[in-house]
Nucleic acid binder design. Structure first.
Length: 481
RNA sequence: GCGAGCGUAGCCAAGGGGUUAAGGCAGCGGUUUGUGGUACCGCCAUUCGGGGGUUCGAAUCCCCUCGUUCGCCCCA
């Protein structure tokens, strides 16, 4: 038995070796090719070999089709958000989905993970380096600056919903193309602005029926506060360097604040006794933060102070917050945001303070699915017809009923009435309009109420004239069920 | 980039070396050729992600590969 296993192993190794040898010879034909280029080419050859094999195309890793069964949920979320934002004086903006790479490098920060390893960057045909937006704020701020949307001292309230892209391994609540609802309030330093924006997030989540979410709150101060804290933290951590996890050791030089929320147990232990950012806030920063907390409490918004909450994008100042759910697996954050007073001027605009957040719609819909929230997509009326003479009439009836506001589906199969009624049931319609040869001849239709089984005949002319009345009856029948 | 698990129909799955690959949902057709929700009957995988190997014989064992899921890193 052992002998057999050994033989299997040797044979398999031999065949792999042969295959590799073959590949080696083929790749050797191209001289002057760097090793990494060669690897790239081999990779893309593998991918195209799969495509050539005649298999149907599949959505790329980390992308997903949102199918018709799911879109009602998305539409409901979007509609709810749009109405809420409209009532709070926010206006929609739609910036493009890709920008110059440099915009994100400068805006988000070269040392961040997002810029360092997660961007979809490519050269266009003109040789420019472009990047699919990894988040929405930077591009939105670019648009605001470009079109001079903030006059001096004015306040600008904006929102946007759309996809963003990050090159990462997908897992629960994480994809390469994902969707964010983004809300930004530009032009105010007032702590009430912070709270207005946070309240919109909590209200929206509440309106959608989400409970048992928690909010972490912190202040990362202004630039000077953070610089002083950063120095103090590095001083504190340097003696412990050898005990930190590998990533944290690297971050000691590049981005020390991020060490604070490392999940490594040993690192966490060390960090416990580290100086707190909150002790380094200037009097102004402290006052701002105090007021934010006061206003939040006044509105009854519950939060937990988390001095170790450090967000991964460089542009945050003062208020930082995250809303999390315990039901999302490892990626618990549904909503993250904060103040970014320096970003707008850094991207070439006037010195303008701002605050905003983003909600991840995949994560949000994941939670809503757990709640089994299912918006209705039922039809009001189902049009059944059979026979050549009825075809055009059925179309006209459907059209007329839609014009008075009813949701109407028309059966296209021409199969037996029995079959068509089955589909009528499934459509959720309460009323069936029946058009057979006899009706077509007499210029009538049968109206059958699927709720009661009651059926009556009416002329086609009367149907369109009394359409409004019919709408009332349909609504009544729906109420009754 | 790293680690672990999993790939059988549109979906959920049983089968873990022996030849016709269970079952359920959905779909289509029929009982009912112009009247639904129920019931019953029939149809729906020459093939188990792909390639190679072992074997008289592979969905089942071995190797490679692709995909996917969850986790690490980090975030939405």
């Amino acid at each position: 038995m052992i002998v057999n296993k050994l033989r299997d192993w040797i044979r398999a190794a031999l065949s792999t070796f042969k295959r590799e040898n073959r590949q080696e010879r083929e790749t050797d034909r191209l001289p002057n090719e760097s090793k990494s280029k060669k690897l790239d080419r081999e990779k893309s050859e593998k991918v195209s070999a799969q495509v050539k094999s005649g298999k149907p195309h599949k959505a790329l890793r980390g992308t997903r089709d949102i199918l018709p069964d799911e879109t009602p949920l998305w539409q409901w979320v979007e509609t709810t958000a749009r109405e809420l934002l409209q009532r709070a004086a926010y206006r929609e903006i739609r910036p493009p989905m890709f920008e110059q790479t440099q915009l994100f490098e400068r805006g988000i920060g070269e040392a961040t993970d997002v810029v360092g390893k997660e961007m979809y960057t490519f050269a266009d045909r003109g040789g420019r380096s472009l990047t699919l937006r990894p988040e929405i704020t930077a591009g939105l701020v670019r648009a605001v600056n470009e079109h001079k949307l903030t006059a001096q001292g004015s306040v600008l309230r904006l929102w946007h919903v759309g996809p963003a892209f990050r090159y990462e391994r997908p897992q629960a609540g994480r994809q390469r193309q994902f969707h964010q609802l983004d809300v930004e309030l530009l032009g105010s330093r007032d702590p009430r602005a912070d709270v207005e924006v946070i309240a919109i997030a909590t209200t929206l989540l509440q309106t959608l029926g989400l409970k048992s979410l928690t909010m972490d709150l912190n202040s990362v101060g202004n630039g000077d506060d953070r610089q002083r804290y950063r120095d103090a933290l590095v001083d504190f951590l340097t003696p412990h360097k050898a005990d930190l996890d590998d990533d944290s050791q690297k971050r000691l030089a590049t981005n020390p604040l991020r060490i604070l929320d490392s999940k490594d147990a040993k690192t966490q232990e060390i960090v416990q006794t580290a100086p707190s950012l909150l002790d380094f806030l200037s009097p102004d920063s402290q006052q701002h933060f105090d007021q934010v907390q006061q206003y939040l409490t006044d509105l009854g918004i519950v939060y937990t102070l988390n001095p170790r909450l450090v967000r991964g994008l460089d542009y945050y100042t003062h208020t930082a917050f995250e809303i999390q759910s315990a039901d999302l697996g490892a990626q618990a954050t549904v909503c993250g945001g904060g103040r970014y007073d320096g970003l707008i001027s850094q991207l070439g605009g006037a010195d303008t303070p701002a605050i905003g957040w983003a909600i991840g719609l995949e994560r949000l819909t994941l939670l809503l699915k757990q709640l089994a929230v299912e918006p209705s997509t039922a039809m009001d009326v189902y049009v059944v017809s059979r026979g050549a003479a009825t075809a055009g009439k059925a179309l006209q009836v459907a059209q007329a009923l839609r014009q008075v506001g009813l949701a109407v589906e028309m059966d296209l199969s021409g199969s037996a009435f029995g079959k068509q009624f089955k589909r009528a049931d499934r459509s959720g319609a309460v009323l069936c309009v029946i058009l057979g040869e006899a009706e077509a001849e007499q210029g009538t239709v049968q109206l059958k109420w699927l709720t009661s089984g009651e059926q009556s005949e009416i002329s086609q002319a009367a149907l369109t004239q009394a359409a409004d009345e019919l709408v009332q009856k349909v609504r009544q029948a729906q109420q009754a069920t």
